[in-house]
Structures are given as structure tokens and as C-alpha cells.
Design a protein around this nucleic acid. Structure first.
Lengths: 143, 143
DNA sequence: AGAAATTTGTCCGTATGTATC
DNA sequence: AGATACATACGGACAAATTTC
């Protein structure tokens, strides 16, 4: 098969399948995922594609990989990563004002993410910033 | 050339070189990096290797890539990402106590990262958690 | 509007290096 | 030392998004 990635790319499909197994407890926390070779056979995918899938899970913090050892499940099975994400507008307190070199009371955007794991909160992440785009705007549909 | 990655992998070398150019202003903010094809020619590397290098820069938040368009520099050239990282022990206030379902005053680890960009603070990230490892411990040097 | 060219995205197969078991 | 498993690298091919003409 060439490279038809109509709906979803294959690596995302594979990542999703692995994610499901982890969330459903088929692969428990701390356990090893199948080796890259095994995944190649199971999904009939190339090594690169399998590694792309694992990289995606790694970015989500779901697994961790060690050379010569394998890829391990990092987080709990059920109730995984409910990652509530909230955006709020808050006013800078003293410490934030100092960090940004702005006046106390200036409006900031707070993004709070709460990672849960089996009902228990694992981590609270709060980031503060002003605003700003990411990429330059698209070219206007020409003349 | 086969695959000798003694000191540094090639993709890291390429990423480092590009990073330098960005930090030194040779490629200014918002500007396009050379295309993947151009980088292949310049570094005499395969497409995959070049893309690995770009992925590394992307993970650092240094650049952003758009399909069909190219890879753009995201952050300021000089004084980049001073990413001060501090760890502190703090006591849970009301909101953190609620998030973790613990008592107010319980000790938590706060990791604060401040991303700067040309002297100006861009983002303040604070994460709170208890503790815990990442990977299962290595096997003892066997029987 | 539409076709062509450009550029990134995905995927395959293979080979060799390095770490761990 | 040998087997296993992940890391790096090459080359080729087709798909999809964007820009250019």
C-alpha cells in the first residue's frame, strides 16, 4: 500500500488503539507495551510509522521509552488524564507583576490544566501570558 | 554514510546549527526557514533526518510549521528562552487544596518556569504536584 | 477559477549503531 | 557473548495544503 491517509493517518490510528488499551487497562501502569517489531507485525506498518505513534503517546506523557528496554505505561489505566482545561482572565498579583514587569492588577490570561489519574489529581499546571499569534497570517487570496 | 552517531546524532547537529542562526538573528522572527529540500542539500542529509531536526526545534517552541507553507521562526532572536526553572516547596492554598483534595497547608512541589524572549517575559508556567518517578527502575545488574 | 509548482505530511523498506537484558 | 530492543539514517513514493501563475 502506498500512502493513502484519507481519514486518519495510520500512526494516529495506531496511537489511538494503544491509548485505548492503556485506558481500558489491557496494558497496566508500569507495564511494557509491545515492542516496535511486534507492533509492526500487528498493524502491518513500517517501523517509522510505529515510532511516530509511540512518539505521539510520549508527547502526551502517556508512556516513556528507554533504549534497549522498551516503552512503558506512565499513567493510570482508567480515568486517565481528564485534563480539565480552563481559561480565565485574572489580574496580576505581586509575583506575576514582577515576572512580567507589569503593574499589579494588569489583566493576564491564565490557563489551568488539571491532570487526574483515577480520580486523584496528579498535577496542576497554570500558565500565564498576555496574548499573541503563532504563525504569520495567510496570504490574501491574491490580487 | 551508514549511521555512525558517535558524539551527536546528525539531526541534533542540524537542529543546533539552525538554532544558532535563529538566535544570532540570521533568520529573523516570523521568517521562513529554508525548505526541507534546501536543508537536505545543505547538510547532505535525508529528508527524515532534516524533519527530525525541525521536530526538535518545534518541541522547543522555537519554530512552527504549516503544511504547504514552511517552517517559521516563532520567538525572538537574541536573549531567547532563558527558561529559568525553579523548584520550591509551597503549602497548598485553598484552590490547590481543593484541586488535590488535600488539606490546606499540605506541602507541594512547585515548579516554576519563566519563558523570556528578548528580556520580556513571555509566559509563566507553574505546576504543582506531589512526587513520583517516571520509569520503572533498571534491573539490577542481574543475578 | 483553475492548473502547475512548491512544500510539508505520511508511509514504506532497509541498514547500521547503541543500550539493555 | 549473544539476543533483543530502541535510536539514527538513508532512499523512494504518493497525499494534501498552499502558493504561484
Amino acid at each position: 500500500m502506498p500512502t493513502p491517509h484519507y481519514g486518519q493517518p495510520r500512526y494516529r490510528t495506531i496511537a489511538g488503539e494503544l491509548r485505548s488499551r492503556i485506558e481500558e487497562g489491557a496494558i497496566s501502569i508500569g507495564a511494557l507495551l509491545p515492542t516496535e517489531g511486534a507492533l509492526m507485525a500487528e498493524f502491518k506498518a513500517s517501523r517509522g510509522t510505529v515510532r511516530q505513534a509511540l512518539a505521539a503517546l510520549r508527547e502526551d506523557g502517556l508512556v516513556a521509552t528507554a533504549p534497549g528496554r522498551g516503552t512503558f505505561v506512565r499513567t493510570a489505566a482508567s480515568e486517565r488524564d481528564e485534563l480539565n482545561e480552563k481559561h480565565r482572565r485574572i489580574r496580576a498579583d505581586a509575583s506575576l507583576a514582577a515576572a512580567f514587569s507589569i503593574e499589579i492588577g494588569t489583566l493576564l490570561v491564565e490557563r489551568e490544566r488539571i491532570k487526574r489519574k483515577g480520580g486523584q489529581t496528579e498535577e496542576v499546571i497554570r500558565s500565564y501570558r498576555l496574548v499573541e499569534p503563532d504563525l504569520p497570517p495567510k496570504r490574501e487570496t491574491h490580487l
